[in-house]
Amino acid sequence: MERVPVLKIGDILLVSIQVDMSDQTAVQLQEDLAERIVATGCHGVIIDITALDIVDSFVGRMLSTIASISRVLDAETVVVGMRPAVAITLVELGLSLNGIRTALNVERGMELIAAAQADDYDYSAEDEPDDETTATR
């Protein structure tokens, strides 16, 4: 079975899916990512799907699950690089990928994560009551 590599760049885990994943590979990726988030303590996950020519309901569900898991582990997930044809198909399929944050490309995705982390920092610095951030910092 093929395995999708997970790269660590600074405070971000980058997953670039380059193969047509079998369902098993997708499930494996989900497990690998959860482990790496805990092991590295990263607060951002970028999943680059530029190379994917389709996203079906299984992969869609995997993306949602990864986003939920990483949220529990205090990491922000951004899915980047979805192709127009894939987005149109997903809308027709009826999959809205609720709760997943998206960006046009890796660069925009990194900006998004940086912005989210800056917010966390701002809030704790300003000493605003913010349950989300006080627990971890």
Binding site: D56, R83, A85, I88, T89, L93
Partner: peptide, 12 residues
Amino acid sequence: VDQTKLVTAASE
């Protein structure tokens, strides 16, 4: 787009 739709349907 039609290719993508068909391949996605086939996958499901």
